Simulated assay, not measured.
Amino acid sequence: MAKKTVATLQTGSGKNHTKVIKMVKSPKTGAYSFKTEIVTNDKVTDFFKEGK
């Protein structure tokens, strides 16, 4: 069953999305947290540029 799920994600619009993870530093405590999103491939660079 898992093979069928993976096969359906690889066809169609599933290839147009990427999971991106960025480390973000808290201004109050200085601790790092992770921001995770699923974005389209053409918006990946915009995701990493925001917040600088």
Rank of each mutant, 00 (worst) to 15 (best):
K28C: 08
L9S: 10
K43F: 04
T29W: 05
V6A: 15
S13L: 09
V44G: 00
K49Y: 05
E50F: 01
K52W: 11
E50S: 14
E37H: 01
G14V: 03
I21D: 06
S26T: 03
S13M: 08
S13G: 08
D46A: 15
T5I: 15
I38R: 08
V20N: 00
G51F: 05
K19I: 05
F47W: 06
N41E: 11
E50T: 04
T18G: 01
K28G: 01
V20M: 01
K52M: 08
G12I: 09
T45R: 09
K28M: 05
T18S: 04
G12M: 06
G30S: 08
I21A: 14
T40V: 08
E50Q: 14
P27L: 07
A7L: 11
F34W: 09
Q10N: 14
T5N: 12
V6P: 00
S26R: 07
T8W: 06
F34R: 14
V6T: 12
G51S: 04
I38S: 05
S33Y: 10
A31H: 09
T45D: 12
M23P: 09
H17Q: 08
V44S: 00
M23F: 05
V39Q: 01
T11Y: 10
K28Q: 12
V44I: 13
G12P: 07
K4T: 12
K15N: 13
K3Q: 07
K35D: 13
E37G: 01
T5E: 12
K22V: 04
I38H: 02
G12Q: 11
K4M: 13
M23C: 07
A31I: 06
K22N: 01
N41F: 00
G30N: 05
F47E: 02
V44A: 01
K43V: 03
E37K: 12
K4F: 10
E50I: 03
L9A: 10
D46E: 14
T36F: 00
V39D: 03
H17T: 10
I21K: 14
T29H: 05
V20Q: 01
K49H: 06
L9H: 13
K15L: 11
T11K: 12
K25S: 09
P27T: 07
P27H: 08
K19R: 15
Y32I: 13
H17G: 02
K3G: 11
V44Q: 04
S26Q: 07
A31P: 01
V20R: 01
P27K: 09
G30I: 06
K19L: 12
K19Y: 06
T45A: 15
L9Y: 13
V6M: 12
K43Y: 07
K15T: 12
K52Q: 09
S13K: 13
T18P: 02
D42Q: 08
T5H: 10
I38T: 15
K4Y: 09
E50C: 00
E37F: 00
K15Y: 04
A7D: 12
T11I: 10
G51T: 02
K49D: 04
M23R: 13
T8S: 14
A7I: 04
V24S: 01
T45E: 15
T18Q: 13
V6Y: 07
S26E: 13
K35M: 09
K15P: 00
E50Y: 08
